[in-house]
Computed example of a mutant assay.
Amino acid sequence: MSSMRLGLRRGWIDIRHTFTSPAELWQYVFPAILLLGTAFFMRNATVPGTSFSLGARTLPSAFGMGIAMGGLVATAQMLIVDREDGTLLRAKAVPRGMTSYLIGKVVTIGGMSLISFLLQLIPGLLLVKGLDAGGTDWLTLFWLLPLGFVATLPLGAAIGSLFDDPRNMAMVMFPILGLIAISGIFYPISGFPGWLQGVAQAFPMYWLGLGMRSAFLPDSMASVEIAHSWRHLATFGVLTGWAIIGLTLAPMLLRRMAARESGSAVAARRERALTRVGR
C-alpha cells in the first residue's frame, strides 16, 4: 500500500509538471491539432464504395492510434531516458522503489494518454460531421479504453527494458509506424492484399482503431470493414491476448533490467551522452 501511494503521488506530480511545461504540453496539444486538421482537410474525400467522409472515418481510428502510441512509444521512451540519466538506479536503491516507480509511470502515461484523447475527442465531436456516439457506444469505450492501456503499456515497458540509449528509439518507432500504415488508421485495409490484412490483425493497433470506429461511426460503416462487422468479441479477445503477453513478459524483462543497473553502467551511459554532445 505504501508503494501504491508513492506511485500514485509520483504519477500525479509528473502529470502536474507536464501542465507547467510548455514544451511537454505541446507534445500532447500538437497531435490533437494535427489530427483534427487532417480530418478537416479530408472531409470532402469519401470512403470507397460509400458517400461517407474519409475524414470522419479517420478521426476515430486516430483515437485508437493515440492510445497505442501512448502505451507503446511513450512508455518505452520514458524507461529508456530514465535508465540513461540514473533515475531508474535511484529508484532501485530505495526499498520498493521500483514498484512505486512503475506505478507512477502507469499513472503518468495513462493519465496523459486519457487527457490527449479528450483533447482530440471534444473538438472532434464539435467540428467533424458524421461522428455518431450513442449510449451503447459509450459503454464500448468503457471496456475498450482500459483494455487498450493494459494491452499496450506492459508491451511498451518490455520494449523499453531492452534498450538503454535514447538514440535507439528509432528501432522502436519504425516498426510501429509501419504498423500504423497497414492497420487501417487512415484508410480501410479491406483493399490490401490478404496476407497484409492478416499481419495488421495480429497486432493491437488495428483492433484499437476498429473498436474506436465502432463507437463513433454509424453502424452502416461496418460494411467497409473486414467481415462487414465491428467484431467486438474478436477485439476483446485479441487485446486480452496481448495484455496477457505483455503482463507475462514485462515483469521478467524489467527484473532483469533492474538487476543489471549499477553506478558504473549509468556512468558509462552518461559518458557516451557527453561524447555525443561534444561532437
Rank of each mutant, 00 (worst) to 15 (best):
G7L: 04
R9I: 02
R10P: 01
T18E: 03
L25N: 07
P31S: 06
A32E: 10
L35H: 13
F40E: 01
F41T: 10
R43I: 06
V47T: 06
P48R: 06
S53I: 07
A56E: 00
L59K: 14
S61V: 03
M65N: 12
A68W: 14
G71L: 04
V81Q: 01
V81E: 01
V94L: 10
V94I: 08
R96M: 07
L102T: 06
G104Y: 07
V106N: 09
I109V: 06
G110Q: 04
L118A: 15
L121W: 04
F149V: 00
L155I: 08
F163A: 06
D165G: 14
P166G: 05
M169A: 05
I176Q: 04
L177R: 10
L177G: 11
G178F: 04
S183C: 11
S183Q: 11
I185D: 02
I185M: 02
F186W: 10
G191Y: 13
P193A: 02
G194S: 11
V199A: 12
Q201L: 10
L208E: 02
G209Y: 09
M212G: 07
S220V: 08
S220L: 08
M221H: 15
M221L: 12
S223W: 15
S229E: 05
L233I: 10
A234L: 07
T235Q: 12
F236Y: 03
T240S: 09
G241Y: 01
I244R: 07
T248A: 10
M252W: 15
R255S: 15
R256V: 01
R260V: 01
V266Q: 03
R269G: 09
R270A: 07
R272K: 14
A273F: 14
R276Q: 09
